[in-house]
Design a protein around this nucleic acid. Structure first.
Lengths: 190, 190
DNA sequence: ACCTGAACACCGTTCAAGT
DNA sequence: ACCTGAACACCGTTCAAGT
């Protein structure tokens, strides 16, 4: 005779992100997450494969937060709409990083194979193609741009730039945008 | 009556890196490192403050490997010697990443305050100044360039780009160099 | 089908004790 | 000064059992 279900994968991942936000990634454990959900650690194993899967799930959640209502052709749909869209996506990544500074590091250390992650990648591919980047360079450049943007956001959030103000200054943001835009330039063939 | 010293900080950090290389960062523990050194876990606490200090020590070691005999004005000390030197430093980072794929991730998740880390930063500052980057942009750009280069190396090493060949292809390396060089361009005032 | 309970080897860190 | 030993609360995961 079946039991009523008391938790599901989404609840578990949410609780895991809560633990990471509250006490850091190191504090994310099967026991701690189970405690927060008021179940036995073993109850989690029906919904996540193991701890690695749990951490990948956090990445899944962060990616989903970044991609959330992302596309929207943008106000300036003219010449450089792609640049506008790219900057907005980067801004959203920064926002997620500052909401989840502890967890954000995971984005750079684990492969992101979730639907949301593929969606973010596909979105950047689109923007690069709109910018006139040649087909064989699109994926390569997406990796580079994504690494730079996520890496900077994670660096700020995790205090890696220790001597620096913890939030990215306007001038940092402008410099990053200038750098990325100029970096893409040689690959454009309009 | 004093005892002969059987381990020191360097031996501990070396053993920690060995564990990371062999079984992954997650396997680096006070117990595991102590086991490898044939001492009690508590013996480590005389030489490292705690586990966080142990992980920071690994970062210290990786930075030292990157900086090792790095400067050397370079063969082409002419116009764009700085570019040559930058590419060589990036190449060295890649080499370290492929020797220590598991540990390399730590470089992007922890502040690097060691002497070696400061040395790497100072070296990049020099190169950027040689390139004609204005004083108030030097540190900002160093953070961006370092993040991009280390992030790409870490991404390759940790299989973050899962669908991709695990070693950076020549064309990836060329594209990264082109991107960074072009990205710096707007900040130069020669 | 879904959760609990007991169990195991392992972990970070403390304190007191040995040499 | 430097290491050991016992101890504690905690961790990932297995297996068998309950509903």
């Amino acid at each position: 005779m079946p039991r009523p279900k008391t938790i599901d994968r989404a609840a578990i991942l949410g609780a895991a992100l809560d633990v990471a936000d509250a006490d850091g990634v190191a504090a994310v454990s099967m026991h701690a997450v189970a405690r927060r959900l008021a179940v036995t650690p073993m109850a989690l194993y029906r919904h996540v494969a193991n701890k690695a899967d749990l951490l990948d799930g956090i990445v899944e959640l962060l990616m989903a937060e970044i991609v959330q209502d992302v596309p929207a052709p943008g106000p300036a749909a003219g010449r450089d709409a792609w640049l506008d869209a790219l900057v907005r996506t980067a801004g959203r990544a920064r926002a997620v990083a500052s909401r989840h500074p502890e967890a954000f590091t995971l984005l750079l250390s684990r492969p992101a194979a979730s639907a949301a992650a593929r969606e973010v990648r596909a979105h950047i591919h689109d923007l690069l193609r709109q910018a006139g980047v040649g087909g064989d360079h699109v994926e390569r450049l997406e990796r580079i741009v994504t690494t730079t943007v996520l890496g900077m956001a994670a660096g700020q959030a995790s205090q890696r730039f220790a001597h620096h103000p913890p939030d990215m200054l306007d001038e940092d943001v402008r410099a990053l945008a200038t750098f990325v835009t100029a970096g893409i330039e040689p690959f454009r063939t309009p």
